[in-house]
Amino acid sequence: MSVLVYIDTLNGKIAKSAMEAVQYGSKIGTTTVITNGSIGERSLAELGAVGASKVLVNRDLASDDAAQTARLVKAAAESINADTIVFSQDLTGKAVAPRVSAALKAGLASGAIALPDSDGTIKVNVFSGKAFGKVKVNTASRVIALTPNAVGVEAGSGTATVEEFSADLGNSSYTIKEVKKQEGDILLPEAELVVSAGRGLKGPENWGIVEDLAKSLGAATACSRPVADIGWRPHHEHVGQTGVAIRPNLYIAAGISGAIQHLAGVNGSKVIVVINTDPEAPFFKAADYGIVGDAFEVLPKLAAEIQKLKAQN
């Protein structure tokens, strides 16, 4: 098998989700990485430690323009005769993978959460995480978009060879006027630890205790939909069926009732902790650990205990 993995390195870093995609590819076949941006050759060679044999880098494409990125991936796929193309199902993957699939007539399995089975079917998330489906690809080559945080990464040793790769990218389809970076450096879709809060927090002025706990853990923050709708928190924090779907190792939910639409986006989390004053809150049915109590008292106590743990280690 010849595998091509596209990773986004535009911000000069290799994201964890990118490493997951590379290692995932390397378990399927000989893996070549294609990337764009200005990241240094030495960092790219380190992708060998997660299974890449070769890294192709294109320095001409400095944006996430989906049409141009798709042309780049298509050219790289053709140059190495790839039969499997892997993306991370992140914001770039969502824009580019369908274009590549249609351009190459290669069936797309999106939202993959595991390696292909021996019969070639690929397990993906469906019904917003309420179920899984097994996708069979009927075309000669295939595109897989991998859900962030679904498979782990273990770095081994090894270095990849790095080569410059040029391709006819065509014109860009849009002009970028401005880039507004999100505050905080832990991105919610790929965070391993998430602290989330709902209407039980009563107002935006009370989010300090949520942020303090997140900070003590090194976690990202999230919220329920009404909280984003009334503007207490930014939209990109809204998790659930109509928000971001996440699957962190730990999801702590304070003052969230656990409506079915909320659960849909978070029930892939490995461990769920629920803090709620109402012992009948439906969220407790989906929880691994439950605390019946007032978030205003529990969150600061929990943060203090986490800090104690961190101080010991």
Partner: peptide, 9 residues
Amino acid sequence: MVSFETYEL
């Protein structure tokens, strides 16, 4: 190009 073979909960 693709088909869903089975589902699971």
